[in-house]
Design a protein around this nucleic acid. Structure first.
Length: 280
DNA sequence: CGCCAGGTGCTGA
DNA sequence: TCAGCACATGGC
């Protein structure tokens, strides 16, 4: 058991804002998996109390995962440029874009396309249960996210049996590309947004939106601005009646919000979803 | 039952 | 370049 100082942070908002799919809420804590570590986290005001199955998962790693090292105040100030985003910031202050594993993020958001969060969680849960490593900790059992090498060897049929639908072949194809190092995820860590984005677009099942999600949640590319159906709703605020292409919508968002547009996106996304009732 | 969900790929103009 | 369409599945 260890504690991590976490000021200007909302565990609840961060974990319910649709960036991750594997954390489960309990009475007064959250349970999830980071890498190979089962992690129990409880937030009491400015402190996170953590318990974990893996000694390699310490305060530094938790701090990194939840991006507690970033100056959220400065980021929010930079994107606080209109009334809509201002309201979203007031409502969800403390929401942070987490630093998730690139492969898990890529695989997860391929599954997320044209789908709802409830079902995405179910699909990914079954994927981990079937092909991940069993993990346990204090009565909690869970699974690691399966490696690309493992998923590359699973037939499309088996993946479809998990309920992945037509995404099964996309996931299999992408797992192969990563396993064969045609898509070297570890080398993408320090290249710029456009390079990450175009590399990801080479995968089947990865279009503009998925590439932006992976760039933002898996590669810390804060200028990425994923636009899904919820974000299109939020963006109507800026373009009332004018019909506008998604390409221009994207360009506008990046100009309007600046280099942390991805943070603005996450606040707006969470806000519009909370208002209109979760999931459909 | 019809509609919707953190879209993408393919086709034809 | 862009609209129109098919694609699986489960919750509401």
């Amino acid at each position: 058991m260890f504690e991590v100082e976490a000021t200007d942070f909302s565990l609840q908002a961060s974990l319910t804002s649709g960036q991750s799919f594997r954390w489960q809420a309990h009475a007064d804590f959250w349970c999830g998996v980071i890498g190979k570590a089962v992690v129990k986290v409880r937030q009491q005001e400015g402190t996170l109390s953590c318990e974990t199955s893996d000694p390699a998962m310490g305060p530094l790693e938790v701090r990194r995962y939840f991006a507690l090292d970033l100056d959220l105040g400065a980021i929010l100030e930079s994107i606080d440029v209109d009334i809509q985003i201002h309201q979203a910031i007031l409502s969800h202050r403390g929401l942070r874009v987490m630093r998730q594993d690139p492969w898990e993020t890529l695989a997860s958001f391929i599954c997320a396309s044209f789908n709802n969060i409830k079902r995405i969680e179910g699909m990914i849960g079954r994927l981990c249960q079937s092909y991940g490593e069993a993990l346990s900790f204090n009565g909690f059992s869970s699974f690691s996210f399966p490696h690309p090498e493992r998923l590359a060897g699973i037939s499309e049929r088996r993946l479809r049996d998990l309920g992945l639908g037509y995404r099964a072949c996309y996931l299999r194809h992408t797992a192969k590309r990563v396993a064969d190092r045609k898509l070297p995820l570890d080398q993408l860590q320090r290249v710029d947004y456009e390079t990450v984005r175009s590399a990801l677009l080479g995968c089947e099942g990865v279009g503009d939106k998925v590439a932006d999600c992976v760039a933002l949640f898996g590669f810390e590319k804060y200028e990425a601005f994923p636009i899904d159906v919820w974000m299109e709703r939020a963006m109507r605020y800026y373009f009332r009646h004018r019909k506008i292409g998604s390409r221009q919508l994207h360009a506008y968002a990046r100009r309007h919000f600046g280099s942390f547009a991805g943070y603005a996106q996450q606040y707006l996304y969470h806000d519009v979803r909370m208002r209109r009732g979760r999931d459909a």
